[in-house]
Computed example of a mutant assay.
Amino acid sequence: MGRVVLWLLLLALLPAYAQETYDWIVVLGAAQYGGRPSPALERRLQAALHLFREGRGRRIAVAGGKAPEDLYSEGEVGCRYLAARGVPEEALFCETRSRSTYENLLFLKPHLEGRLLLVTDAPHLPRALFLARLLGLEAEGYPVPGNYPLGYWAKEALYRLWLYLGLRPQGVFSSRFNASR
């Protein structure tokens, strides 16, 4: 009788310990300054590193290009950051051309197969997931916690409204200076 209770207890608790595993953890771009991640990019990279170490993803893709005056791309800086913290080079993919959330996902798409876990700021995540689905990517999200200003939430809500209305993802709302950067 005691064994039956123990097995029932283990079966009941098993789903609580089960964690999803993704083929890719995808860190969406945010600014870098002179080869160092901005605070926003560093929060995203730390979250991705934690998820990777937990075994939640097999590989990490870091997206983001550079402004004309920059020496380094966001993807390059992010990959160096993760490699310096023990992520094997073969587990990293660095996308270095994109200049918007839409381009982050568009340029990564040919390189990613399977299930994706998008890592970005909590206010930015709903728009990123909408764009991922628009591009046919199988994506779920991981919202990086933070104390985000109300204006960031409002701007992201307007971006999503823009997309829900069927307007192009590129243009005014996906410029180099969007809120996720």
Score class of each variant (00 low, 15 high):
M1P: 12
V5P: 00
L6Y: 09
L8S: 11
L9S: 14
L9D: 07
L10W: 12
L11E: 06
A12H: 05
L13R: 10
L14H: 04
L14V: 13
P15G: 03
A16Y: 15
A16C: 14
A18H: 15
Q19S: 13
E20A: 15
D23R: 10
I25T: 08
L28N: 06
G29F: 02
A31C: 01
A31D: 12
G34L: 07
R36S: 11
P37V: 01
P37E: 02
S38K: 05
P39N: 11
A40N: 07
A40M: 14
L41G: 06
E42V: 04
R43G: 10
R44I: 07
L49D: 09
L51Q: 14
F52V: 01
E54M: 13
E54N: 00
G55D: 09
G55I: 10
G55E: 10
G57V: 11
R58H: 15
R59M: 02
A61Y: 00
A61E: 00
V62C: 12
G64I: 08
G65I: 03
G65A: 03
G65P: 11
D70A: 14
D70R: 00
D70W: 01
L71H: 10
Y72W: 13
E74V: 05
C79P: 01
L82G: 09
A83T: 06
A83R: 14
A83I: 06
A84D: 13
V87D: 12
E89T: 04
E89Y: 00
C94W: 08
C94H: 08
C94R: 08
E95Q: 15
R97A: 15
S100Y: 01
S100E: 03
N104K: 05
L106H: 07
L108P: 10
P110H: 05
P110F: 07
L112A: 15
L116C: 03
L116K: 02
L117V: 05
V119R: 05
T120S: 11
D121H: 15
D121R: 11
D121C: 09
L129T: 07
L131Y: 07
A132D: 03
L134V: 04
L135W: 02
L135M: 05
L135T: 01
L137F: 01
A139K: 02
A139F: 04
A139M: 05
G141N: 13
G141L: 14
Y142P: 04
P143E: 07
P143S: 04
P143I: 02
V144M: 13
V144S: 14
P145D: 13
G146P: 05
N147L: 11
N147K: 08
Y148W: 15
P149C: 03
Y152H: 07
W153A: 04
E156T: 00
E156A: 03
E156L: 03
R160F: 12
L163S: 12
L165N: 04
L167R: 15
Q170P: 04
G171R: 06
V172T: 09
V172G: 04
V172H: 09
S174N: 13
S175A: 11
F177S: 12
N178E: 12
N178D: 13
R181G: 08
R181F: 09
